Amino acid sequence: MPLAKNAYASILLMPPNWLGDVVMAQPAMRALAEHFPDARIELFGHAWLQDLTPFLNLGKASFCAAPAPCEAAFILRNSFHAAWQAWRMRAANRYGFRHEGRGILLNHALQARINMKNEHHREYFLDLIEQAGIPVSQRQVNLHAPEVERLLGEVLLTEHGLDVEKVICIAPGAQFGGAKRYPHHAYARIIAALAEQGWQPVILGTDAERNIGTDCLQNVAAASWNAAGKTSLRQALQIIANTRLMLCNDSGLMHVAAGLGRPTIGIFGATSPERTAPSGQHVSLLYQPADCSPCLARECAVEGQPCMQNITPETVIQHCLRLLTH
């Protein structure tokens, strides 16, 4: 039964825990925000969610580190702890999937109809929203960079000696594990070739990935910036809003760039595009599976990481230049 648009005046929205999953959940969260335009909607989660919220295109919804009691909670995480948090925060109506025995804490415990092992994660989150009685009009990710955020990114790039019109972003890491990472030496060859064409590379990532960024830029003499570990998530998003190209592994920043409409190349190996392909009109996905793909492992157990070795640097360069010249 459809929920009335005035059913709830205050809503707690609990997005998933990983950056990429939050972006893939954006269509579901957007549907909720559109259905309850007058409600107070608070997003509750990791502190970095505050940096992402302005880009999620969710109307008046805002991040809140300490949510007030609310009439309804929509729990897009699967953990028992998340359901317990919603119950402890005195959310009167708690919507979520039955998982890890947490049904006792949910007075709207729903049964997932989407199998995340072989169906797209976007549809999993949309399934929850639709079963809750909320109509969905847009099933693709549609992020938005406010103009002030884009301008701040432009200033940041200029301060580091870069020409905004020539910036390309590379995110060679993947917090999930090494099995999702394209080899550093291959990235170095690709980046050097693009730099020779006049493009100015910016490496994005965490402080733990800074050495990877250094390796990737070792053959670049032109203007460049290893920004891994040197920006907040919000600053990284501001930079992405200005980039001419995003080249990366299957990662959260891949989903952000594609969702913002930036030309994006995603390299897949241990994971499958069938489950986590990003939304976007200017997206090129490279996937040459080995016999063991997709293993979904954090670290590769096969010598030589064949799923990544099957994708040559020359192939990646061709795809990059195709997106950069169209």
Rank of each mutant, 00 (worst) to 15 (best):
K180G: 03
D51P: 06
G229F: 09
M246L: 14
N242I: 05
E34P: 04
K117C: 00
R275V: 14
E42D: 14
A192V: 11
A145V: 05
L152G: 08
R113E: 13
I317T: 15
A277T: 01
C248A: 15
E71F: 09
P172F: 08
P172C: 07
E165L: 06
A208H: 10
T325A: 03
Y95N: 02
T243Q: 10
F36P: 13
F36I: 09
M14A: 10
Q238N: 01
T206S: 15
W87I: 05
G229W: 08
G59T: 08
N310Q: 15
P313F: 11
G45M: 10
L56M: 06
I212M: 02
L56C: 01
E42H: 02
G229C: 08
D215M: 11
L126A: 08
D291E: 14
A193Q: 13
C248G: 11
N118A: 05
P183M: 10
T271V: 04
D215F: 03
N17E: 11
I170G: 01
N310L: 09
L323P: 01
A179Q: 13
A9H: 15
R30E: 10
M14R: 04
C307T: 10
A290L: 06
C320Q: 09
A221G: 14
P172R: 13
C300K: 14
C295N: 04
I129L: 13
E119S: 07
L285G: 02
T158W: 05
F55M: 12
L76V: 00
Q138W: 04
A228L: 00
L194W: 14
